[in-house]
Design a binder for these strands. Sequence first.
DNA 1: GTGGTCTAGACCACA
DNA 2: GTGGTCTAGACCACG
Lengths: 237, 237, 237, 237
Amino acid sequence: MFKTVKQNKAYQDVVEQIQEAIMEGALKPGSQLPAERELKEQFGISRGTLREALRVLEQKGLIEIRTGVAGGSIIREINSENLSENLGMLIRNRSVSLHDLAEFREGMEGDVAALAAQRAAKGDLAQLVELLGEAGGHLKQGRKGWDAFIRTDEQIHLELARMSGNQLFIAVLTSVYRNIHTYYENYLPWSKELLQENFDDLRNIVAAVSEHDAEAARQMALEHVRRFNGYMEKKQV
Amino acid sequence: MFKTVKQNKAYQDVVEQIQEAIMEGALKPGSQLPAERELKEQFGISRGTLREALRVLEQKGLIEIRTGVAGGSIIREINSENLSENLGMLIRNRSVSLHDLAEFREGMEGDVAALAAQRAAKGDLAQLVELLGEAGGHLKQGRKGWDAFIRTDEQIHLELARMSGNQLFIAVLTSVYRNIHTYYENYLPWSKELLQENFDDLRNIVAAVSEHDAEAARQMALEHVRRFNGYMEKKQV
Amino acid sequence: MFKTVKQNKAYQDVVEQIQEAIMEGALKPGSQLPAERELKEQFGISRGTLREALRVLEQKGLIEIRTGVAGGSIIREINSENLSENLGMLIRNRSVSLHDLAEFREGMEGDVAALAAQRAAKGDLAQLVELLGEAGGHLKQGRKGWDAFIRTDEQIHLELARMSGNQLFIAVLTSVYRNIHTYYENYLPWSKELLQENFDDLRNIVAAVSEHDAEAARQMALEHVRRFNGYMEKKQV
Amino acid sequence: MFKTVKQNKAYQDVVEQIQEAIMEGALKPGSQLPAERELKEQFGISRGTLREALRVLEQKGLIEIRTGVAGGSIIREINSENLSENLGMLIRNRSVSLHDLAEFREGMEGDVAALAAQRAAKGDLAQLVELLGEAGGHLKQGRKGWDAFIRTDEQIHLELARMSGNQLFIAVLTSVYRNIHTYYENYLPWSKELLQENFDDLRNIVAAVSEHDAEAARQMALEHVRRFNGYMEKKQV
DNA sequence: GTGGTCTAGACCACA
DNA sequence: GTGGTCTAGACCACG
């Protein structure tokens, strides 16, 4: 199945061969690569080199290396985790400021809410309402429920992204949330009023989505994000 | 009650430590990591394990490994290459469809154009106009200028992103363009009329940006993207 | 700049999680851990690894593993048995000589006797007197009562430690006695006079404790121990 | 060398055989046990069972398991680490209170100081004086030197224990110090005056030890410890 | 190339 | 049904 590797950049060659085999569908997700000791024979390389290649593939999210009897290198379903991680690195690197992040989010949230409103299925809506209920419960617990509320808040936003059905929005927003979190926790002066306001916004967005009113949902989401960004920038000064 | 145990592999630990050092700025781009033989001492691991870690970092785009007398592991500027690569894999894998990509672009282009209109400096505008001139030139060359026109078209869009001043938009849009290219080339029934229409759109957008009319720019950009997406989807059927 | 990598073994992680749960009181003594087949699910590990973890916990004295249908891992009361065992290994390993042991005992016995004198309750004193009576009885039986006498002697000392109310003294002295025994049996030239002298010492110590005379008790105990140590060292030469 | 295991508690049997071999000196510290795959043959058990046995021995501090080509199960020098861990558990569990610990220390420190005074060699004294100098230096640095001072303080006490030449005192005191630390750091209201007082005490003790005045050293140490215990108990209320 | 780590699934003995 | 034991095979790490 695989060709013997010629010369320089041996591990790169191995990576490319396996990657190509996966991309072309010759290796299906869930199936297994041969054991390391056999692969190294097929490629005509040493085990160390092979392991470097497998590491790179693992890092790319193409394979998962498991130990044990049913272990080995298993082809993974391609997903957007890596995309999120890369975006996260860009954000954390401060080449992306909080302001950039907020500005970016403004545009996205509106689009996502609008798409969610257009495509919401009944099951999705039920899920949204349940999350909203949870959030309300956390809010009533007072200060000790704040953390849980913020987490549920985030879940609602991600659920909206999921409802948009667009993998790209999901991946990018997930990454944005994962990284905006630290800013919120450090910079935002959380207060009961703020959380309540936040909760009201969420309720409005969910209502608009339930009625499949895309433009209303977009507008609600946009205002919601814009108001929060305003709070954060004020605080940061 | 108990958490699932995550098998901490030695090389992973090394990756995280170096990555963290880079992210926190303890290691600046351009600077060099200590030699492998010293690093392995600092981490208390073997050379093989260290090399696996360095490969992963290289794959992540965080370092560049050079051979030779002045060689070693050099810290790289963080860039969006990896983001593009991941996006490319998702697209090739059909996890992200053309429709997803187009939908995503619709939202983003409008935002970017609006921001560019708000923030355009004189130098930026001159650059835009120059690019527009180039595009016009290519268009007049007839069929043999088409390729050059499409490239210039893309450059104009990226210049708008650059003018927005938002690193996140720049990184994400760059990745999107790098990958949407293949679709355009393969699926779109390029014709003289189409290119002319495209050129007119660009001129309108640049005009709106020049007048700092954010909403007009947004609207122009949105329509432009939407129309093209329409052509592509029709063709795809 | 970088830390040495600690290879985190899966079983260690499990040990720490369970130990922490016990220490924090989340798992109360007497309660039961879930069955192995369920625990392995919770931790996401194999049964073999889990069993290694349970063995370590058993060895630490934190759990007791029972077989059978109502069996399983039962949380134990934390006690000082292990402390004694470890101290015992140190002593047996000859890194602690008889002389070291004797010297150590000199300091401790005085302190313990003084504390016992200060804190003796009536019930405690009655117990002491009863033990003293037993010892006297054994002494009268002649040679065949010697062994029993020595055992009762030790019990009196441990009772004094118990009366001090200090768990640390109890644990350490228990361990010392458990391990000094071998020396006494092998090296000391037991004789009727020696036992009688020993008995008189005990009577004096008990008397001082009964009168709550801490300093007298300390002095008596110190002399008692010191004289015996003298005999032993003479013999050893 | 080892016998085949019969039936019941296979792993226990293995533990005992190896432990006995170590205790009797048949296996010297630093030497290596055969590889797992060979040991399992010798004992006639499976690898899993053998590993359970090795885990127990590792937990007991009798062997150290290393990975890699020169790896395997290596016989360890018996030390007091385990003793410290056990003591720590008893303390965290409140089986041994701070008061117990302090009371225990009172008795021991006096004895240790007296023994150190009797046996101090010139090299030992030089070492003591050097540590004292360090402590003085840390003290002059003000608040930022406090931590270093406390650590040096502890080192001086342990040096005294080492000078006593009694392994038992060394082991027990080391364990006590390792665990009393947390109390000092959390409960004691450190202040400049307190540290100065502490430093003066240390100077007096070292002076007495230098003059080989055992009783003075004992008295100084006792007062030193007692005063500190007083502060801590007052604070705790 | 050696040796430790971890896994999955199986059978046995016992309370 | 629960712990006790076994098997075989794969990765992980070292020098």
